[in-house]
Design a protein around this nucleic acid. Structure first.
Lengths: 241, 241
DNA sequence: CGAAACGTTGATATCCTTCAACATGAGTGG
DNA sequence: CCACTCATGTTGAAGGATATCAACGTTTCG
């Protein structure tokens, strides 16, 4: 809580739209907490109620688990992303969210969401926009898992995360701190761990990227885009609640 | 336009929440059109702007196409579902929507969406809720495609559609008009057409359902649920805009 | 230093795809 | 009503992509 929302370092990034002070102060007024979580800890539990969060720093991921234990990672969450919108609109969350690194979270109690719709329609609109954007990410992931082969899947995942991280200024010298294990990648792509490993190494040997020791270095973005059968993407600044 | 929103036949279904007349009239006031489309016709084009719709009758589906033509169906759209929320919040749609049967659509111009947030926060909230619900469907589909094998995928798809249709009163004698071709099923599940066919017939021979001539008859819901490695689901009435 | 998590590799098994051919059904024009 | 065509569904065979199994290497961390 020490840093007021007005001075939030995320706001100065070009990835985010500028908000009038009045709205920022409203956001601050409904923010109830600023949490720290260790890597690996649960942020939202499937089957339980959850608040609404903004990820302030770190990485997290959202996933579902089948009765027999298989798990599917639905998307990854980066700083500035809204987290728990579905969960806070339904009575219970339908998915788990776990911190991938140490994270900081801004907490907005679900009880205040209605206030936001009532008093600050612009912010409610932004929230809906952010929800639509998350869905569009899940759409992409479904397309990756359903229609692409192993090489294309890995390529598409790398591209997607690289792009997002780049917008947040987390990339320098085409290099990025990359906290996913190969098991995370496998669970996101619907591939086995072993095959994921072999596919990554194939791409590594092809020279399109290097991925080791938690560091991703992208050598050739365009080749990777081509390998991924990627769509064109339009990137626009997004609201930050 | 002949039937006023107050008398909308969908509203009387138990699947939908009751709305005060004032709000229904507001909905009516921003509804700009009532469209008819033939089966197979495009409702939303990827790369183009789109309005916001409610599907009044019929079935539709939302999908993406890779540069080389492979296509992934993201979800199916049934009466009462919102359609084009993402598309109408972004400048262009990132996906296509095509009518699976003849459909009727209620049209709400995107230019009026802001008005709705400003003047009717309850409806804005409902819209966000419906968006969150669609995302949760895509989450499920991603889990199906990423973590289930062929038999489980088909079972999960059938269960999901049967459940939704049932809530809308489209099921009688455990039987339902089912307009998907096996190619649609294959494209939704990330399976080849041939393997989809063989999997369906395997399930048919196991006696859990029958699917032919556009008719789905579900013989044993619980066995199918078990085969699908299905989650428990909580079903609650939803808003209708 | 030891243990545990994570990554790597080869061999084998399996699920799913592809190919090809044919069957069936729906729609159309003669 | 029949003959034709096109979409859709069905089936067997063969090949390929991915999964599984098992063993070992490497890093991290207490």
């Amino acid at each position: 809580m020490r840093v007021p929302c007005r001075d939030c370092p995320l706001r100065s990034l070009s990835a985010f739209t500028k908000l009038p002070v009045k709205k920022i102060d409203f956001i601050q007024s409904i923010k109830s907490n600023h949490l720290h979580h260790d890597a690996g800890s649960w942020i939202i539990h499937a089957g339980q109620a959850a608040e609404l969060f903004t990820l302030f720093s770190g990485w997290a991921f959202r996933f579902k688990t089948l009765p027999d234990g298989r798990r599917q990672i639905l998307n990854f969450i980066l700083p500035g992303d809204l987290l728990g919108l579905q969960a806070s609109m339904f009575s219970d969350s339908l998915y788990d969210v776990v911190a991938l690194t140490a994270v900081e979270l801004c907490v907005f109690p679900r009880s205040k969401i209605w206030l936001l719709f009532e008093r600050m329609p612009e912010l409610a609109f932004d929230m809906t926009w952010l929800g639509a954007r998350e869905e569009s990410q899940v759409d992409d992931n479904l397309t990756t898992v359903g229609a692409r082969n192993a090489v294309e899947r890995v390529a598409a995942l790398i591209i997607g995360l690289y792009r997002r991280a780049n917008l947040l200024g987390m990339v320098s010298d085409q290099t990025l701190l990359f906290p996913l294990s190969q098991q995370h990648i496998a669970d996101a792509l619907g591939l086995s761990l072993v095959h994921t490993n072999k596919t990554i190494n194939r791409l590594r040997r092809m020279g399109v990227f290097d991925l080791s020791h938690g560091l991703l270095k992208l050598h050739d973005f365009h080749v990777l885009e081509h390998l991924a059968q990627a769509f064109d993407v339009e990137i626009s600044p997004r609201p930050l609640i």
